[in-house]
């Protein structure tokens, strides 16, 4: 079967682009890292891909607020193409800085503020995929996903989380520990159609069992890999 062509959109300062590429390759995608500036120069390039990732990092050094500059670039230079990409049902995931970009670009609801404890925080968390979610990326995932967070602005803010839940737009919640003060323990949300997912944690950093911090003590294992999200995304793209 042919590989799903996937694009990883990187801005100046995106730094988990290679980690995501590795994850996508493991689940059978043909993943390319493309600079946002190149896509903006040739917007039609986006149409060559069936799946898109806005990867994590510090685009524009988080200047004037995380994700704002790259979101502005994408909306001014690529807004129409991105909206038709989504309208065609092609899956999009924004991870960490990518999530911040997608909320600022209004492709996802809500906003991400400074962590409640006021600091950048890197630690492993446990995520529950929300059962009644429209999200194609978390579909069918029953076991909790284990993966790290690494962010300073990951506190999810939304004026009406209940309406989000009712619309099936809450995709992932932090289990037991909410690391940043996110409303309703929300770790990931999707657009109403379910093809666009934004999440703060990094599933791309748990793609082999050895990466789990308690691997040697029997922790983690295949059922809890972050890789499962990418399997779902690629599977969905293949079915289009």
């Amino acid at each position: 079967m042919s590989q799903v062509p996937a694009v990883i959109i990187a801005g100046p300062g995106t730094n988990r682009d290679h980690d995501v590429r590795h994850a996508l390759e493991l689940v059978g995608a043909d993943a390319r890292i493309v600079l946002a500036s190149e896509l903006i120069e040739r917007p039609r390039l986006l149409g060559d891909y069936r799946l898109a990732v806005v990867a994590g990092g510090f685009s524009y050094a988080d200047s004037l607020g995380a994700g704002r500059m790259l979101a502005l670039d994408l909306m001014v230079g690529l807004g129409e193409e991105l909206r038709s990409f989504v309208a065609a049902g092609r899956p999009v995931i924004g991870i960490c800085n990518g999530f911040q970009v997608l909320t600022r670009a209004r492709l996802l609801p809500g906003a991400l503020g400074h962590n409640a404890q006021g600091r950048f925080d890197c630690r492993w968390v446990v995520l529950d995929a929300v059962e009644r979610s429209a999200c194609v990326w978390t579909k069918g995932i029953e076991d909790p996903i284990h993966c790290p967070i690494a962010h300073g602005e990951g506190r999810y803010v939304h004026p009406d989380p209940d309406s989000l839940a009712a619309a099936g737009q809450i995709a992932l919640r932090y289990r037991s520990t909410n690391p940043n003060g996110s409303v309703a323990d929300i770790a990931g949300v999707c657009d109403p159609s379910g093809v666009v997912l934004g999440m703060m944690p990094h599933p791309e950093n748990h793609i082999v069992a050895r990466q789990h911090p308690r691997h040697c003590r029997g922790g983690g294992g295949a059922a809890h890999l972050g890789l499962r999200l990418f399997e779902n995304g690629v599977h969905h793209a293949k079915g289009l």
């Binding site: 730094n15 988990r16 290679h18 980690d19 590795h22 600091r119 950048f120 925080d121 890197c122 630690r123 492993w124 790290p148 690494a150 990094h202 791309e204 950093n205 793609i207 050895r210 990466q211 911090p213 308690r214 003590r217």
Partner: peptide
Amino acid sequence: IHRYDHEILGSTVVRPLIGAAS
């Protein structure tokens, strides 16, 4: 330690904090 990203690149096998409760 938690203020430093020690997970990026996915290569960190033994971390600075380890064990049952990390």
